[in-house]
Design a protein around this nucleic acid. Structure first.
Lengths: 363, 363
DNA sequence: GACGGCATGTATAACGTTGTAAAACTTGAG
DNA sequence: CTCAAGTTTTACAACGTTATACATGCCGTC
């Protein structure tokens, strides 16, 4: 069969007219009357090329509209220029914002991001970590939820892996996170300083125990340190981490007859779900119950009651994750590191004495 | 330099121990004592392979832990198995949810999604549409904001392009969207049926005119059809489409001395930003001012006042987009089509007579 | 029992790129 | 002028895969 490729005398014109033309180094070389490798040298900014030659070849490149074939380059070099980012859920705005920050950071290094989501399910996380979902990647940034250390232990080390988030493995991989225990303690301390004495925790994960563990621990430690009781009856387990889960958990606590004067939620959507329930039940935030969330997502700043939240430096996390992956790719790979990103506590109406009045706060 | 590849007598064992081993068809062929192509045939489920041979080769594949090299396959076949999805913003939960739906749909066809975001900036959209940001893709799904028709007209037709969203081009590309004019009219009609007479529109785009145009048009048409005046003084232009922009716009309208009895916002985040302002100014929703948003993002269901919103069928949009791209890839390419996705109006507290009481609504 | 036809397996040549090594030029010193 | 020591360019062989075309073996049939 005749190859379906279209060649014209004036490919540049053809290209301009929108006809598919694939131009290879070979074509450029022929056009410029030099060898393929010389063209390659020009394309790759090889040092020893005379300005005259560079000029001449560049002219042909422009004329033909040549663009390197990445598949071939990849096959040859073993690099794709793609890193994968696997997150539990895109629906959670925290992860969406994180994804944006990773994409931007990667793009600064001329890397492109392949995005995947696991739903926080071990099965999916396993597939991702072993590269079965995306097999064209130079590196992987994974934010695991259910994955166990053992799942990662016998992973083929083909592509470098960087872990994100709250899970705490003892494994030879870079891990980027904020200090969850300290951050949780800061949040709870803030509540205690407001005079709250019964602080509920919403969002311990039902079933497998690990996720949220660190934040629960922070909650427990801080209460204990303050001489208050860390009453496990005030810890509400949930199946997921969405608004609805927060609402369910809040209802559950209130239905059990408890009346905490503060709630610390695993994340913002859950805190907002909880606030909705409080509103429905006629409980005032923060007068009756103060609420603190985690992640500082944008929507927390625009509710009827704006939400106090632990605010991780998402931009830094994205940047650090990308840099870690690329460092390992380029063999500048030091010992596996635990990298702590910054965070702060963004205080808003949900923990203030007086609720809103005036202008939109803290945008 | 010696190639860094490690080969052992028992690669499977090595793989299990996490040592990087790259196994090619050649290795499998040697191991099974057959030709490379035969192994390839097995891998590709070629029809004419005896069960015995298939069995034997498969055994070698498993033993060596062979996995096809996608770069090579791509180079040979001209396909990557990757489609790109370029959205304006991931921070907007609508787009995040849409991304999730595209990823899922793609994964059903064994395709992987490369995600990019343009910030809604023409420059970025141009780069994306011409494939300068991602050059390893089989197809592109783009949700443009500022891009003009002319920008797409002289695009090289290398990879199929499918357009998403409100922009309305007369170009030979598939376009998937809901009927924005009709949806906007439905939203405004709903407000009118509630007895509202002064309906403001928030979110006409400042500067370049196109985006939001269809929704503004729907607003205008429906008001006119109802015999009401489509007062352009009630249309607030904004720079972006976030919560803060909605808040600014709402403030702007109120500061101008107008007191509309309803607000129709370009999207949910803007509607929520507007509601926050109304709350700060002591105006009640819906009693004083009813609010309708667009996109039906999850957070609209958990505010103190839940938000009525136009709810596009995001799953369908994602699915249709992926199917369109793949159809065009496989040459089953009919005439460029405009495909309408479903939508409905999700009615909630922000347009009800009486606000919440009872349970979390409509999750 | 040779022969067409079919099912099965194989050798080889691409795909477009870059690394290596060697060839072809410069240049400047003796 | 020659030759050594650069600098610049070239030829060629990979990278791992699949398409093509061909070789083989096995039927049943004339």
């Amino acid at each position: 069969m005749v190859t379906a490729r279209i060649r014209t005398d004036q490919p540049s014109r053809a290209a301009h007219e929108g006809i598919a033309v694939r131009v290879s180094l070979k074509d450029v070389a022929a056009h410029a009357g030099v060898s393929i490798k010389t063209v390659s040298n020009v394309v790759n900014n090889y040092q020893h090329v005379t300005p005259a030659m560079r000029e001449r070849v560049q002219r042909s490149i422009d004329a033909l509209g040549y663009r390197p074939n990445l598949a071939a380059r990849h096959l040859r070099k073993g690099r794709t220029g793609i890193i994968a980012l696997a997150l539990p859920e895109l629906g959670n705005p925290y992860f969406a914002e994180l994804a944006a920050s990773v994409i931007d950071a990667a793009s600064e290094h001329d890397y492109i991001v392949l995005l995947d989501h696991t739903g926080g399910m071990r099965e999916q996380e396993l597939l991702v970590s072993q590269g079965f979902r995306a097999r064209v990647i130079d590196g992987l940034i994974l934010s695991p939820i259910e994955l166990e250390a053992e799942d990662l232990r016998d992973r083929a080390q083909d592509v470098p892996l960087v872990l994100l988030g709250e899970r705490d493995y003892d494994l030879p991989y870079d891990h980027i996170a904020i200090d969850n225990v300290a951050a949780a303690r800061a949040a709870v301390r803030h509540l205690i300083c407001l005079g709250r004495r019964e602080v509920a925790f919403i969002g311990a994960r039902r079933g497998r125990s690990e996720p949220a563990q660190l934040r629960v621990r922070g909650w427990r430690e801080e209460l204990t340190a303050a001489g208050l009781s860390a009453d496990e009856g005030l810890v509400a387990a949930t199946d997921g981490w969405g608004h609805a889960d927060g609402a369910l958990a809040m209802n559950h606590i209130l239905d059990s007859g408890r009346r905490p004067d503060a709630v610390f939620a695993y994340n913002d959507p859950m805190a907002i779900g909880a606030m909705r329930v409080l509103h429905e039940r006629g409980l005032r935030v923060p007068e009756d119950i103060a609420v603190v969330g985690f992640d500082d997502v944008i929507e927390g700043r625009f509710g009827a009651v704006t939400l106090t939240s632990v605010s991780p430096d998402k931009a830094a996390i994205g940047r650090l994750a990308v840099e870690s992956v690329l460092a390992r790719l380029n063999d500048r790979a030091p010992e596996p590191r635990r990298i702590w990103a910054d965070y702060r506590l963004a205080e808003r109406e949900s923990t203030l004495g007086r609720p809103a009045a005036g202008k939109v706060t803290d945008v």
